[in-house]
């Protein structure tokens, strides 16, 4: 079947099998490899992208379900490939990553979280990231980074 998905502001289209998962469409059809596949069972959040602005786990969405909609991956957060987006900049500043595998999913989940609740507390961040696992257990600095990105003082 033919799908047309706006990815990072660019119209994309491909003839895919209906069983094609959104994450495979992004990685294999479009070559956008920031989005990782971790658990592949809706648990770890490494494959988190924005679908019409809301965080989703792209291992549990069919490309067909995104047909006609807009997807944002971590590549789409800046036009020039830099860390200029407030969330990516904050992850860099606060060293919100260790091995980096969970990072794109964490960043995209954080973008969605801040969009939905600009007045985040530390508790909000911790519960808001419940769908994203960091196997390095580097949560402390991830939470700090999200607070900084939301304009909060992580030491408050």
């Amino acid at each position: 079947m033919k799908v047309e998905i706006n990815v990072n502001g660019t119209a994309t289209t491909a003839d895919v099998e209906p069983r094609t998962l959104l994450v495979h469409y992004l990685r294999d059809n479009l070559g956008l490899k920031a989005t990782n596949i971790g658990c592949d069972t809706t648990s770890c959040g490494a494959c988190t992208v924005l679908l019409d602005g809301e965080s989703v786990k792209s291992c549990t969405v069919l490309a067909a379900q995104a047909d006609g909609l807009s997807v944002t991956t971590m590549e789409g957060l800046s036009d020039d490939g830099t860390l200029s987006h407030p969330v990516t900049a904050a992850f860099r500043q606060e060293h919100g990553l260790q091995c980096g595998f969970c990072t794109p999913g964490m960043v995209m989940a954080a973008v969605s979280l801040i969009e939905e609740n600009p007045d985040l507390t530390e508790a909000d961040v911790r519960s808001g990231l419940e769908g994203n696992l960091c196997r390095c257990t580097g949560y402390h600095n991830i939470v700090r980074a999200v607070l900084v990105a939301a304009g909060k003082d992580p030491d408050a």
């Binding site: 809706t42 809301e54 965080s55 969405v61 969605s112 939905e116 769908g131």
Partner: peptide, 9 residues
Amino acid sequence: VGDPQVRHR
């Protein structure tokens, strides 16, 4: 239920 990503879908 689940987590924010699950609740979005």
